[in-house]
Design a protein around this nucleic acid. Structure first.
Length: 524
RNA sequence: GGGUCUGUAGCUUAGUCAGGUAGAGCACCGGGCUUUUAACCCGGGGGUCGCGGGUUCGAACCCCGUCAGACCCGCCA
């Protein structure tokens, strides 16, 4: 059974209806790591719906979280905003300076991410956490937390093993300058928390407003109750023993609610360069990823991997493999009855992955079949600049019959992006040689050499079309009575520097007469 | 130091929760097709399930130990 279906089953035994949640702090550019958070939750949500379990999926944006430091992509001017809720500070310009007309910081990073989610078929109910504070929905929990301040203090110290300062308080008010840093609580009388800030200014915060927030570990536990969350997969950082999940459970209970069960997912790493991090620039954004691969394959990458396994996201060769694997499975899904238990489980797991990879819930996976492997399309896209030529070629090779479908058109345009970008795998790249290198010259026999020279004279005076060129190659091998294979190998060595490759006549046609002849004449 | 997760074929992995003959794909090798598209079709080899013990009629699966990797215990998906 697929992990999402399994989780859905488990949840249905505990609660009648589900609220599945994700939570992310919009402190910088979103990356595909965040996509795992979102998709893990969203797939469980879909699995619930598919099992006819009532379910809602919410995405809580931690817009009240303070700016913790000046990240690498920000200018020094952000120093003054440290400690401010992200929703209250200006968005950065591309150069990192604050843009006072550009809306707030949280939204700046959130909006493009939501756009990407739409394309991936994720339509969450978005909850801006600052609005939950501002609406007063947090007030009861804040009051309870303050009343139980010592117990919460103890829970955090005991479970996380970390010492909290004496003056620790389960509510951080915003001071006179807008920052939560250096604000000391001096008293509490419902609904006001009074304080003195680092400038010596005194004031009070209304717990029914966004005048402050609870610290992370308490905030998280409180919101489980406020939204009635039954499942919130958490990154393994939160899942560690003594981490915020472990402290959240008793705190949530203390605040009068039933916590969700613990569920922890592994991180996505960029192959070879460790965990993703916006500050180190070691990141691929969801938008960038969508420019390379179709959304269903992005979903498939998450769906096919068990939650507790880490994913190496590799924009190179293994992306080809995964994409082709998807294509294969979709066009030829596992089936059959009378299987033993293990095979049935395996079959259902794969079918589950395909089902959950669909952009729209309930879509027939076969609609996303492009009918061509990524590898093959990559090759065509490199040797043919005109899309129509590619459709013609695919018709000729019987990959498609007639006009290309939408899936295929979208795939080709992404393929062209991929090829142009830095992420395209080198071994799939076709490199046209300037001339034959010495190493390859040695590989060539005398007959092959004669073949190439003879072909050259024919090419100089022919009509430049693929069928003509193809014909000339075959004619020449016949005339010289050499094995056609030998002739092709010689041509491949000459033009792309390897002894095999895609249909050579296509490449030559695409190169044009002048350039082709150049390669020939520079080589001999 | 304390803890969590992961370890199955060269690579990616299914199967571990409910013990019952280790199963795929990629890659590789061989064959076919033949106008050589890196396409397509057929076949094949390849696994002491990290290691050691225990429980059991029977262990990849349960228990104990051990090794390796990743991560957490301030903030991070």
């Amino acid at each position: 059974m697929h992990w999402a279906d399994h989780t859905a089953m488990r949840l249905s035994k505990q609660y009648d209806s589900q609220v599945i949640a994700s939570g992310i702090t919009p402190s910088g550019e979103f990356h595909i790591g965040h996509l795992r958070e979102i998709l893990t939750a969203e797939m469980i949500h879909r699995a619930c719906l598919d099992a006819e379990i009532d379910s809602e999926y919410i995405f809580i944006v931690d817009s009240m979280d303070p700016l913790r430091r000046v990240y690498g992509f920000l200018s020094e001017e952000y120093q003054e905003y440290i400690g401010y809720p992200l929703v209250n500070i200006p968005a950065p310009n591309p150069d990192g300076t604050p843009n006072h007309e550009g809306g707030n910081y949280a939204n700046h990073f959130l909006q493009p991410f939501l756009e990407a989610l739409k394309e991936i078929g994720v339509h969450p109910k978005v909850v801006m956490n600052h609005e939950t504070y501002d609406s007063g929905d947090f007030a009861t929990k804040i009051d309870l937390a303050i009343q139980n301040k010592d117990k919460i203090h103890e829970i955090i110290e005991n479970i996380s093993g970390r010492e909290l300062p004496e003056e620790w308080f389960p509510y951080n008010p915003i001071g006179s300058d807008g920052s939560m840093d250096g604000v000391k609580v001096t008293g509490y009388e419902i609904p006001y928390v009074s304080w003195i800030d680092r400038h010596g200014v005194e004031g009070r915060s209304d717990i029914r407003k966004a005048d402050g927030k609870m610290p992370w570990r308490v905030d998280w536990a409180a919101r489980w109750g406020i939204h009635g969350i039954t499942c919130e997969p958490a990154g393994k950082d939160h899942g560690a023993s003594g981490g915020s999940f472990d402290t959240g459970i008793p705190i949530c209970e203390l605040l009068g609610s039933k916590p969700p069960g613990k569920m922890v997912y592994e991180w996505i790493q960029l192959k070879g360069s460790g965990p993703m991090s916006s500050s180190s620039g070691n990141t691929i954004g969801p938008i960038e990823a969508l420019n390379l691969v179709p959304p269903e394959i992005l979903r498939y990458i998450i769906a096919r991997t068990k939650v507790k396994k880490h994913i190496d996201f590799d924009t190179g060769p293994s992306l080809f493999e995964t994409a082709d694997e998807y294509e294969r499975l979709v066009s030829n899904p596992p089936s059959g009855d009378n299987l033993n238990k293990k095979k049935m489980v395996a079959r259902d797991t794969i079918l589950g992955s395909l089902r959950l990879s669909q952009v729209n819930r309930g879509d027939d996976p076969s609609k996303s079949i492009a009918g061509v492997s990524f590898r093959h399309l990559a090759m065509l896209a490199q040797i043919k600049s005109n899309d129509q030529d590619i459709w013609d070629s695919l018709n000729k090779s019987k990959h498609i019959n007639g006009e290309p479908n939408l899936a295929l058109i979208g795939r080709l345009s992404r393929m062209r992006n991929w090829i142009e970008g830095a992420h395209f795998p080198e071994n799939a790249r076709i490199k046209i040689q300037e001339k034959m290198n010495d190493e390859n010259k040695e590989k060539i026999t005398k007959e092959q050499r004669i073949f190439l020279l003879s072909l050259l004279t024919k090419l100089e005076n022919c009509v430049w079309s693929e069928s003509q060129i193809s014909q000339l190659i075959r004619d020449t091998t016949k005339e010289l009575e050499i094995n056609p294979r030998e002739g092709y190998v010689a041509l491949y060595l000459l033009i792309i520097g390897r002894d095999y490759g895609p249909r050579i006549a296509s490449i030559i046609t695409e190169l044009g007469k002048e350039e082709t002849i150049q390669i020939f004449s520079k080589s001999f």
